[in-house]
């Protein structure tokens, strides 16, 4: 007969590996990042610091690289989110309305989701090539002069956005298609009986009923766009030309992994500010979700 003590402890035996992992690699880092962000003039090698305060935050906010990074990131979110969401809503609606080739088309639209940002980013880098790139070639057919997509500060942000939109579409379309499938077909039948035009159906039925999913997509994508970072490596081998494409996550990486000696305090402060933004977006999301479900 197993003891009662064992029965009481048992749940924690099931949880033990998880608790150990989460404590070391999630909980402790959260506590530590707050601590590091508050330690002023922290020296990693000796462990010395002059005291606790908000000096790191001040330095980060006044750092022109961070300002640039925040500016670029906000701009990236502002460009990628609206364009990708509008495109995805249209494509998802069309995909949902067809009967033939659905599997084939879905495969094509969803494929980019499972492939490595690094590898496909290189394909885009090749396509964006100034002289040999297929994009400039296609543009030249329409009389557009060649654009130095990757090598000029004027246009490399556009290249980043084009790639970002392409990469985020599959995930967005999947969520929207599944949202569309949850709409009761009764609404459409009723509208057809009333003789409503397709465009009117789209704006009066599809969009309002899809609103919760659109909102979910907006918030999730917003968060992932705020973390734009990986894309910079295959496309530009770093943050653009003369650091013109610094993003917030790149800034964090730069402070603690590129710089020697590493500036952990600044990286931590920047990371917390990123978290602040994401936290606000998340709050907004749950707030609106609650409102919508009522």
């Amino acid at each position: 007969m197993k003891s009662r003590f064992f029965e009481k402890v048992k749940p924690f035996l099931y949880l033990a590996p998880f608790i150990v992992g989460v404590t070391i690699f999630t909980l402790y880092p959260i506590v530590n990042v707050v601590k590091m962000s508050l330690m002023e003039n922290y020296k990693y090698l000796t462990g010395d610091f002059t005291g606790y305060g908000f000096g790191n935050f001040k330095t980060v906010i006044e750092d022109q690289y961070f300002r640039q990074a925040m500016g670029n990131t906000l701009k990236y979110v502002a460009v990628v989110i609206p364009i990708s969401t509008c495109l995805a809503v249209v494509i998802a609606t069309l995909l949902n309305s067809i009967k033939k080739f659905q599997a084939l088309l879905q495969t094509a639209y969803f494929l980019p989701m499972v492939t490595s940002v690094t590898a496909v980013g290189l394909a885009w880098r090749f396509m964006f090539n100034y002289k040999q790139g297929v994009i400039n070639y296609v543009l030249s057919l329409f009389g557009v002069p060649a654009i130095d997509w990757l090598g000029a500060t004027a246009s490399n942000f556009s290249a980043l956005c084009v790639y970002g939109i392409w990469a985020i579409l599959p995930f967005t379309i999947i969520l929207l298609v599944s949202g569309l499938q949850n709409i009761d077909p009764m609404y459409y039948t009723a509208a057809k009986v009333d003789g409503a035009k397709p465009l009117r159906i789209f704006f009066r039925i599809t969009i309002p009923l899809l609103a919760p999913t659109i909102f979910l997509v907006l918030t999730v994508n917003c968060i992932s766009c705020f973390k734009v970072y990986n894309e910079l490596f295959p496309l530009f081998a770093g943050p653009g030309i003369a650091y013109n494409l610094f993003t917030v996550v790149y800034y964090i990486y730069y402070e603690f992994r590129v710089l020697t000696p590493a500036k952990y305090g600044l990286a931590a402060a920047a990371a917390l500010m990123l978290f602040g933004v994401i936290f606000v977006v998340n709050m907004l999301k749950s707030f609106v979700e609650k409102k919508l479900s009522n």
Partner: peptide, 29 residues
Amino acid sequence: FPGRNLIFSCLLALMMVPFEMLVITNYRT
């Protein structure tokens, strides 16, 4: 077990934390 729901809600809150924020300490660990 005691605190089951409380612990689970706390875990859900942790999901909000981006990996990019944890990476600094995890690297040092």
